[in-house]
Computed example of a mutant assay.
Amino acid sequence: MSSLEQRLLNNYQRNFPLVPQPYEQLAGELGSDSQTVRDLLAELLMRGKVSRVGPVFKPRMLGSSTLAAMSVPQEMLTEVATLVNGYPEVNHNYEREHRLNLWFVAVAADQEKLEQVLSDIESRSGYEVMSLPLLKEYHIDLGFRMDAGDKQKVASNTEQNNTDCSFDPALHGSLIAAIQTGLPLTERPYLTVGEQLDLSEETVIETLSEMQSAGIIRRLGVIVRHHELGYRANAMLVWDVPDDQVDALGQQLSAEQKVTLCYQRPRIKPRWPYNLFSMIHGKSRDEVMAYVDDLVDKLALKDTPYEVLFSLQRFKQCGAKYIVQENVPQQAVMR
């Protein structure tokens, strides 16, 4: 990895400039030029190291979302995963080591649409879908450093909304639809977006700034793909915690350096007894398991039931689409 690539990926996973020529500003800070920076980003997109340059929206601020799981026979897994992938509402889809072996995230414009998507997947596949919506967020930050430098954890500001932002479907909805898959790599991307929507460059910049301040946009920047950057061991670490202790443990886990996600979801007994979810990404399975062991010892969690669900296959990973065209039905995968 070149020095320019490393600094670009380290420094701009958040706080992407909201100025007319953001790539020019990045280039100046990196000691390069705008064309070189944009060419490098285009190459990283092509190689899959970067999924987009754009926004990450805060869960529950827009639309409705859930983490869903299915138990699918191994011989049917690829076929069912392909069916699930066909829904634009699904943005992540993984096989994990568990009896519930297919896990996906779905985001829709509202709860009714979300339930329709889940019901449709269930009826067309012939397998039950277990929905685990977010109850409380403690830490969500999928930024990854490319070096061994300062690894201080960035606070996720899970409960902060600094300003109000009255949602205008015509303005905010059209802007979200235009940028949810990424900003263009043009010299003046906000002008390009504005021209598509019949908005001024200034209006696009001001609206994005308002959405950031209101917490609708969690971060704006270079969104990397962890697997392509060497973080190939992806483990979902789930805990069965007494309800009156979940907040305390959630905050403790969130402070740990290698915990990238931490949030509360409902138990679905008897199938699913766990109510606290955390994610750990590492470069190897052994590295992740060593960290889990250290975490259990450090936080005195030996008596707390937990499971480690490593991902085995990534079927789909992309940014959430909050505004989508209606899906064209595929052939059902009935068992």
Rank of each mutant, 00 (worst) to 15 (best):
S166Q: 13
E159T: 15
N234Y: 13
M146N: 09
D240Y: 05
D33H: 11
S71T: 12
Q212C: 11
N11W: 10
Q196K: 14
S209V: 00
N275D: 07
S156E: 06
T82K: 05
M76V: 08
M279I: 01
D164P: 01
T78N: 15
G230Q: 02
E256Y: 10
P133Y: 11
R285K: 14
K153G: 00
R99S: 10
Q74G: 06
T260E: 00
Y94Q: 00
M334R: 14
E210A: 09
Q212M: 14
T192I: 01
Q180F: 06
T158D: 11
P55L: 08
W239A: 02
G63L: 04
E75Q: 14
Q25H: 06
T207K: 01
I205Y: 00
K136P: 01
F57N: 06
A109Y: 09
P266K: 06
G126T: 04
H227T: 12
L30F: 07
I205H: 00
Y138K: 03
L220C: 07
G215F: 07
K49F: 01
Q313M: 09
Y322I: 05
Q317I: 11
D110H: 11
R7D: 09
E43Q: 15
V296W: 06
K153E: 07
A233Y: 04
D33I: 08
L309E: 07
V72W: 10
I179G: 05
V328W: 03
Q116F: 08
G143D: 11
E89S: 14
P305R: 13
Q116L: 10
S213K: 13
L191E: 13
Y263G: 01
E326C: 00
Q264D: 00
S2W: 06
K269E: 12
T78I: 03
P88I: 09
N234M: 02
N11K: 12
R232M: 01
H92S: 11
D286K: 15
A320G: 11
T192M: 00
K302C: 09
H92N: 07
L83T: 07
S209Y: 04
T181M: 13
G28K: 11
Q317M: 13
S278M: 03
V72K: 10
L249T: 10
M334V: 14
M61C: 03
M46T: 09
S284T: 14
V222I: 15
V222F: 07
R38H: 02
M46Q: 14
N101D: 07
E202K: 01
D120T: 15
E43I: 02
